[in-house]
């Protein structure tokens, strides 16, 4: 177990720099999620920490020692790949025990550790199978098992759930969170899914275009986004950004209101608009409303509501939860 320190880390491929000046301090045992749009550099940053990608600038410290020049093995990290990358000719047990067999551990010790990991992941019945004879979810668990048998200092995961179907994804999400609580190992988890980030992370690192946009706990990011980008990225459905008259009225370039922060049929100060689409989810009802003078707005109402397409509704943003942004997309403090 160890904490990590990323100091002015940067990455360039030839002339093009894809990660710029990354500063981040990760505490021992923390669950960190890197999140951001495709191509923002999440995987690259993770691979630099793993030792699979050369660090072209700055310093990486793992457990207090400089790791820039260390091989992946010397860094004592484990990684779960998006494609799982299981060794196809080895059985599940051999896959999980491979790193231990390279360390020349005894057969009995390997078998015991593999069994322990297999029990934790309900892989017991499959130990003698080859990866080709497993379902996607089982393969995914073998990949996790291979990473945990060694008890590494740091555990890296690159979009480990993106090949699973929705149901299995939320199930495995919970399992990984539980695993982290049991193992108390530092975990760095890459995803582009903000729901995974919100539900699993101690702290989220939002990356955009090779820069760190914001670092904070999920609720920090939700309540106090440091930029319009973060505000739009965190939360689902996405925050409404309103320009024009309503924004000018409060001295902002853009107003940000989350869909769940609207009051229906207020007594005063109402915006008025026609419903263009209704999504009924049972626990929530999502209305798409074309507000006069503000444009299209998404409204997320708790519970079931009777509005239909074409109805005129009256809305008011909840004053406590209005975000104001200046012309650079920075928040204007209230």
């Amino acid at each position: 177990m160890a904490g990590l320190e990323l100091k002015n880390l940067s990455k360039a491929y030839g002339q093009t720099e894809v990660l710029h000046d990354i500063n981040l301090s990760i505490a021992d045992g923390e669950f960190i999620v890197f999140v951001g749009p495709s191509g923002c550099g999440k995987s690259t940053l993770l691979r630099m920490i793993a030792g699979l990608e050369e660090i072209t600038g700055g310093e990486l410290m793992i457990g207090g020692t400089r790791a820039n020049e260390l091989s992946p093995k010397q860094r004592d990290i484990a990684m779960v790949f998006q494609s799982y990358a299981l060794y196809p000719q080895m059985t599940v047990a051999e896959n999980m025990g491979f790193s231990l067999s390279l360390e020349r551990k005894s057969k009995a010790e390997i078998a015991a550790k593999v069994q322990e990991a297999a029990d934790a992941l309900q892989l017991g019945p499959y130990l003698d199978r080859k990866p080709g004879q497993l379902s996607g979810g089982q393969r995914q668990r073998v990949a996790i098992g291979r990473a945990i048998v060694r008890k590494p200092k740091v555990f890296l995961l690159d979009e480990p759930l993106s090949n699973l179907d929705a149901a299995l994804r939320s199930e495995t999400r919970v399992e990984i969170s539980e695993l982290h609580q049991r193992m108390e190992t530092t975990m760095i988890y890459v995803t582009h899914d903000q729901v995974e980030a919100m539900t699993m992370a101690d702290r989220i690192v939002v990356l955009n275009g090779g820069y760190i946009e914001q670092v904070g706990s999920p609720m920090d990011l939700y309540n106090n986004p440091a930029s319009e980008f973060v505000a739009g990225f965190i939360g689902s459905p996405k925050m409404n950004f309103i320009k024009g008259a309503p924004a000018d009225a409060v001295g902002a370039t853009t107003l940000g209101v989350r869909p769940e922060h609207f009051e229906m049929n207020p007594s005063e100060g109402a915006w008025q608009g026609k419903v263009t689409l209704v999504e009924r989810l049972g626990h929530d009802t999502v209305l798409y409303v074309n507000v006069e003078g503000a444009g299209p707005v998404t409204v997320n109402l708790s519970g079931q509501h009777s509005q239909n397409v074409g109805d005129t509704v009256h809305l008011k943003p909840d004053a406590h939860f209005i975000h104001k942004f200046d012309h650079e997309g920075r928040p204007i403090s209230v």
């Binding site: 699979l52 093995k73 990290i77 484990a78 790949f81 990358a85 299981l86």
Partner: peptide, 14 residues
């Protein structure tokens, strides 16, 4: 052969 296989083995310490 997938590059990730080679990388996974490096991470495993091979």
């Amino acid at each position: 052969v997938p590059k990730a296989l080679h990388e996974a083995a490096r991470i495993d310490g091979a």
